[in-house]
Design a protein around this nucleic acid. Sequence first.
DNA 1: GTTCTGACA
DNA 2: TGTCAGCA
Length: 123
Amino acid sequence: MPLFPIGPVMQLTELTARQIRYYEEHQLISPARTDGNRRMFSLNDIDKLLEVKDLIDQGVNMAGIKHLFALKNQEANPILKAEKTERELSNDDVRRLLRKEIVQAGRFNLPTSNPGNMNRFFH
DNA sequence: GTTCTGACA
DNA sequence: TGTCAGCA
């Protein structure tokens, strides 16, 4: 359901074309293409971009956003959710493991002056 | 006029 | 990320 090109999307999301294209490279969105290879964004794409905007504003980098999106998708996917249940992992277990992994790898570029930010993503 | 890819600082 | 080049 392709709606509008990158111009309007830039205004709606307050993101630069550079950022939007970068997020596409990292598969955070998958806008359709016109015959002339122009990107056409769906409502879904714009919704995701707004979420990304929010996280970026809070200091989360690509890796962090990918993790959070993956977590969210897992919650929404019946099959994955079922697999998780089979392993008897609660949502809190998943969050604990994710936080541990991310903290160790230092994949979040949160400012040291504001370390409390991280808790908001996992609490 | 608008968007695209690639590339550099 | 910003920005510039060279196309379409």
